[in-house]
Amino acid sequence: TGEEYIAVGDFTAQQVGDLTFKKGEILLVIEKKPDGWWIAKDAKGNEGLVPRTYLEPYS
């Protein structure tokens, strides 16, 4: 389980392990790392690192 967040901007993977997403996408945050990069999963089940500055809590 995780917390749902909504993307407030588009993000394109910079390196292997990053997750590309579009503004408005709902992501499930699995782990919040202290460096500001969180592990998240998208609706298709893809998992990767995302920058927390692009996310806001979804309710």
Rank of each mutant, 00 (worst) to 15 (best):
G2Y: 14
V8T: 14
D10W: 05
G2H: 12
E3R: 09
I6P: 01
K41G: 03
W38Y: 06
A13P: 06
L27F: 06
K41F: 09
Y58E: 04
K32E: 04
G45S: 05
E31L: 13
G9P: 00
A43N: 10
G2P: 15
V16H: 13
I30D: 02
I30G: 03
I6G: 02
G17E: 05
G2F: 14
L55P: 00
A7S: 08
I39E: 03
L49F: 12
A40K: 00
E25Q: 14
E4D: 06
I26C: 06
V16A: 13
T20E: 08
T53M: 11
K41Q: 09
F21A: 02
F11E: 01
G45I: 01
F11D: 01
A13F: 03
E25P: 00
L49E: 05
W37I: 07
Q14W: 11
A7T: 09
E47W: 11
L19K: 02
S59P: 07
Q15Y: 10
Y58Q: 06
G45W: 04
G2S: 12
W38S: 01
D42A: 03
G17W: 07
A13Y: 03
K32F: 08
K22L: 07
L19D: 00
L19Y: 01
D42Q: 03
D10Y: 05
W37K: 08
F11G: 02
P34W: 10
P51L: 13
Q14A: 12
G36M: 07
I39F: 14
Y54A: 11
G48K: 01
L19S: 01
L55N: 00
E25H: 09
Y58S: 07
V29Q: 00
I30R: 06
D10S: 12
K23P: 02
E25T: 09
G24K: 03
S59T: 15
I30P: 01
F21E: 00
S59I: 12
K23L: 08
A40T: 03
Y58M: 11
A40H: 00
F21Q: 00
A40D: 00
G17H: 07
E56T: 13
I30E: 02
A13C: 05
W38K: 00
E4Q: 15
L55Y: 00
A43R: 11
P51E: 07
F11I: 04
A13D: 03
K23V: 08
E56P: 01
D35Y: 07
T20K: 04
I6Q: 06
Y5D: 00
V29A: 02
I6K: 07
P34F: 11
K22P: 02
I26S: 03
E4F: 15
Q15N: 13
G24P: 01
K32D: 03
I26W: 06
S59H: 14
I39S: 06
Y58I: 09
L28Y: 14
Y5L: 02
K41L: 11
G9H: 15
Q15S: 14
T1S: 13
Q15K: 15
S59Y: 14
E31V: 11
R52S: 12
G2K: 09
I6N: 02
Q14T: 12
G9V: 12
G17V: 04
L28E: 06
K44R: 14
E56I: 15
A43P: 08
G45N: 07
I39Q: 07
Q14F: 10
F11S: 03
Y54V: 10
P57T: 07
P34C: 10
K32N: 03
N46M: 11
I30Q: 07
P57M: 07
E25L: 03
L49R: 14
V50N: 00
L49A: 09
K41I: 10
P57I: 09
Y58V: 09
W37G: 04
A40M: 12
A43F: 10
I26G: 02
Y5F: 10
D35W: 05
I39Y: 12
Y58D: 04
Q14I: 13
L28D: 04
L28A: 05
K44A: 14
K22D: 03
L28S: 06
W38H: 02
G9K: 15
T53V: 14
Y5P: 00
E25V: 06
A13T: 05
K32H: 05
N46R: 11
Y54N: 06
G9N: 14
I30H: 04
F21P: 00
F21H: 01
